[in-house]
């Protein structure tokens, strides 16, 4: 968007003001996230830049909050829990969601609208309501404060993302390929693993990543249904923020931001790959 040569001075002024406004908004979006990173190396237990830090004096920086994080029993347990619960829920959600998306794309199911509504509902219902419902339900079947309970709840919350991404991949799917495979004598299982799966894999993986991040970042349901033993990273941060705000939280936050950058990059690469495979974009 360059300023045309015939623009009046007023138009030029507006053009640059507009750009400035936009960059301020971008700054608003990322600054809070970026600013935590240097602060997590603060040598002092403050949430602001000390004089030493501003002078780039090495004395102002330290790894103490990272050391504290890795020495802490409860933080380590929460990291373990987050991965165990996240991976278990992701596997379940991916298998269930992919199967359902395949089924939905195949035939004109009667009541497809209603089915779709049910499958999407965990994404639409506010988490606080889902959490309350799960709390009553899991307590009534004696699964409150168990890993299984949390995993089941997170699986339910993650499935809509898998259904949506896989369905989106299947929109451009050429069904004559599977018919051709069958015609050439492949069994339905073989057709699925040799033809369908490789083509929809990017969608499945990015759906799985969405499901993982949903579980990994989920806190409301955890607050309701998890006990001390099942505390995840967000749950530990919640207590950290409420009880004693220490810069250890900034160290955790920095690591989480790095993790989300990794996930974001993966999803973006997958999306491009998927578009390329299906010939939807030149490259």
């Amino acid at each position: 968007m360059a300023v045309p040569t015939y623009a009046t001075p007023l138009e030029k002024l507006w053009h640059y003001t507009f750009r400035l406004i936009c960059w301020l908004i971008f700054f608003f979006l990322v600054a809070p996230i970026i600013i935590m990173m240097p602060l997590s190396f603060n040598a002092q237990p403050y949430f602001t830049f000390t004089l030493e830090m501003l002078e780039f004096n090495p004395q102002g920086y330290s790894m103490r909050w990272y050391q504290e994080l890795f020495a802490s029993e409860s933080w380590m347990r929460s990291i373990r829990n987050s991965f165990v619960i996240g991976i278990a829920a992701t596997l379940l959600a991916t298998v269930l969601g992919t199967l359902a998306a395949l089924g939905l794309s195949r035939a004109k199911l009667p009541g497809k609208g209603l089915i779709m509504m049910i499958l999407i509902s965990p994404m639409v219902v506010p988490l606080i309501i889902a959490g309350a419902g799960m709390f009553f339900f899991l307590s009534s079947v004696n699964l409150a404060n168990t890993f299984l309970g949390v995993v089941l709840a997170h699986t339910a919350l993650g499935t809509p993302f898998v259904v949506i991404t896989v369905t989106a991949t299947l929109v451009g799917f050429d069904h004559s390929l599977t018919r051709a495979a069958a015609n050439l004598g492949a069994s339905p299982t073989r057709t699925f693993f040799k033809i369908t799966m490789p083509l929809i894999l990017p969608g499945v993986v990015s759906g799985g990543l969405f499901a993982f991040i949903t579980s990994f970042d989920e806190i409301v349901v955890v607050l309701f249904v998890a006990g001390v033993e099942q505390r995840t990273i967000p749950r530990e941060m919640w207590s950290g923020i409420r009880e004693d705000l220490s810069p250890t939280i900034l160290a955790v936050a920095t690591l989480l931001v790095l993790l989300s950058i990794m996930l974001l990059t993966t999803v973006e690469l997958l999306r491009r790959r998927s578009e390329r495979i299906r010939g939807m974009s030149p490259g």
């Binding site: 971008f26 979006l29 990322v30 809070p32 996230i33 600013i35 935590m36 602060l39 949430f47 991040i213 990994f216 970042d217 806190i219 990273i233 967000p234 941060m237 919640w238 923020i241 705000l245 939280i249 900034l250 955790v252 936050a253 989480l256 931001v257 989300s260 950058i261 996930l263 974001l264 973006e268």
Partner: peptide, 20 residues
């Protein structure tokens, strides 16, 4: 710039605002 906050943990963003 838009996707980074979108993918960052909710708790991280909330604590960032507390810090700020």
């Amino acid at each position: 710039f838009v996707l980074l906050p979108f993918w960052t943990s909710l708790l991280v963003r909330t604590s960032a605002w507390i810090v700020l």
